[in-house]
Design a protein around this nucleic acid. Structure first.
Lengths: 101, 101
DNA sequence: ACGCACGGTAAGCGTACACTTACTAAGGAG
DNA sequence: CTCCTTAGTAAGTGTACGCTTACCGTGCGT
């Protein structure tokens, strides 16, 4: 599953946003979200498989944090969209005189 | 539906990517994608409701293009994530000496 | 007016997926 | 060793959603 699809789920996006703030254990996330702990686990697996988070086992805990590389790839996608959208917008703005013909 | 959810569907993301390149009519999009035209219509409605595209009626055609404002909001979200992820990453990098205690 | 192209929408269908509970393995404290 | 905490995973369930076909309204050319 790719990163966009992974973040397309509201619960997963909420999880990701918390991990952006700071690394968390599963129980922490589960205590803050309106879903069960196993649901959180399942979502974290999706995020991990999408390359967006990294799991670090510490004792019985598994601390999840954002994977900068996955986030960078997502950002690159968006910057591409943004660049193209800007270019297209400028093309439209530069053509009004033609439109008045 | 918010923009993230809207782009979380692979078909919708494919549609959006085409509109990033240039404005398109529904039939154009439908001819390039492996789904029916009404499916494309339905997806475009979702993208429009999410504030990501704008529909411009031209004769019998409806030309869809990217809405720069919607894209900017998405980009702002991502820049927030990126900024926080960088800050958190720097915090980790600045702490290695503590880790070696 | 007629015919065609275009596109929105309704209705229907199948299945993927987000949720749950239950189970079990791993780690660690006492 | 026992007990507790933590977390992954299996299995089950219900419904949302992405797809289709059918229908119909609008615009436009002849």
């Amino acid at each position: 599953m790719d990163a966009w699809t992974a973040l397309g789920d509201p619960t997963r996006k909420a999880i990701f946003e918390r991990l952006v703030d700071r690394p968390c254990a599963v129980v922490e996330l589960a205590s803050e979200l309106p879903v069960s702990r196993p649901a959180v686990s399942q979502h974290l697996k999706v995020l991990k498989d999408a390359g967006l988070v990294i799991a670090q086992p510490i004792g019985t805990r598994r601390i999840y944090r954002v994977d900068p590389e996955g986030l960078a790839a997502l950002r690159a996608d968006l910057e591409r969209f943004w660049g193209k959208a800007l270019a297209a917008y400028k093309t439209i703005v530069e053509q009004p005189s033609e439109e008045h013909k």
